[in-house]
């Protein structure tokens, strides 16, 4: 009994008198953190180390996703019979319409191949597609990123394009073993080469860091871009395959005082709502950027 109380007293005394912040440790840690920041920014080998370290937080990401997954399951169980029936009906008509479109598609594809053969152009290859699920969203409002449940162990690669049912969502920017981070096209760092579907005019769509808004950069005053135009990926740059919808032009501002036209577009993918995403391709399209392109 007396031993316990003396121990308690000792710990109290320690708490009171072991004051003074550990300056040396503080300085060392600060220097270490700065070193980490600099090496993470400038040294590409850090990416691998980061992938290993991210393994530690993978369970945490699953944990974060748990409530919403449970809610999904629950709403799946608690759905009423009439809603199921009407859903079924709607999906059946939708499937029928899609099948009709695919029938046309087959003949169009055959025609396309014939014409391409006539022109001696290369064949277009159908890209393999994989369904993945979203397990997290970056809470930082400045970074439009989502986390998916596939990683380098599932052959996801850096720069892999990600779509949803509506169009292009973004690309994989950082990999761990069982998860990957996808930067959305609206992120302030994102840019994607597009063309206007109507006339093939090419431009680059930049993310603005605002959800639901893209901006076309350096569009000359004379360019034929109108409100409502569909923008599709142009396939230039080698990251995104050609022909997937990116967005529709929502606003064209022609100011005679400005050098370029301001063109805003709205992404066609449901960036903040889709839970099931599609990973396109199974290997990097461009192994290495040619030196003369990279240097420019």
């Amino acid at each position: 009994m007396s031993a316990v109380s003396s121990q308690n007293r000792r710990s109290v005394i320690k708490t009171i008198f072991r004051g003074g912040a550990p300056r040396a440790l503080f300085v060392v840690l600060i220097l270490f953190a700065v070193l980490l920041i600099i090496s993470d920014l400038n040294w590409s080998k850090m990416r691998e180390g980061r992938a290993w370290m991210s393994l530690v937080v993978t369970p945490l990401q699953w944990l974060v996703d748990l409530p919403s997954r449970a809610a999904d399951n629950l709403s799946g169980v608690l759905v009423s019979r009439t809603t199921l029936l009407s859903d079924n009906e709607r999906l059946r008509t939708e499937a029928l319409q899609l099948e009709r479109k695919v029938q046309q598609n087959a003949s169009l594809m055959a025609e396309n191949i014939r014409l391409r053969e006539l022109l001696d152009a290369g064949q277009r290859v159908d890209e393999p597609v994989r369904l993945v699920e979203l397990i997290g969203v970056n809470p930082d409002p400045f970074q439009h990123e989502v986390i998916i449940n596939h990683g380098s162990e599932d052959n996801v690669y850096d720069g892999q394009p990600v779509l949803d049912a509506g169009g292009v969502m973004g690309q994989v920017v950082s990999l761990s073993h069982y998860t990957a981070r996808v930067m959305l096209i609206t992120d302030a760092r994102a840019a994607i080469p597009v063309e206007v579907n109507r006339n093939g005019f090419r431009a680059i769509a930049l993310g603005k860091g605002v959800l639901g808004e893209l901006e076309l950069e350096h569009v000359p005053d004379t360019a034929d871009v109108r409100e409502g135009d569909l923008l599709v990926t142009s396939g230039l740059g080698g990251r995104f395959p050609r022909g997937y919808p990116v967005g529709t032009v929502s606003e064209v501002v022609r100011d005679p005082g400005q050098q370029f036209v301001q063109v805003r577009a709205q992404p066609s993918a449901r960036l903040d709502k889709s839970r099931h995403l599609l990973l396109v391709g199974d290997k990097p399209r461009l192994k290495e950027i040619p030196a003369e392109v990279a240097s420019e």
Binding site: I30, I37, D40, M46, V56, V57, L60
Partner: peptide, 27 residues
């Protein structure tokens, strides 16, 4: 400060920010 540094590193990994940013500010 030691625990704060480690916690900051975990935070960096979770948030996907540059490694060391949270570690620095939390230290």
């Amino acid at each position: 400060v030691g625990s704060a540094f480690l916690l900051g590193l975990v935070m960096d990994l979770v948030r996907g920010s540059v490694l060391g940013l949270n570690a620095l500010s939390m230290t």
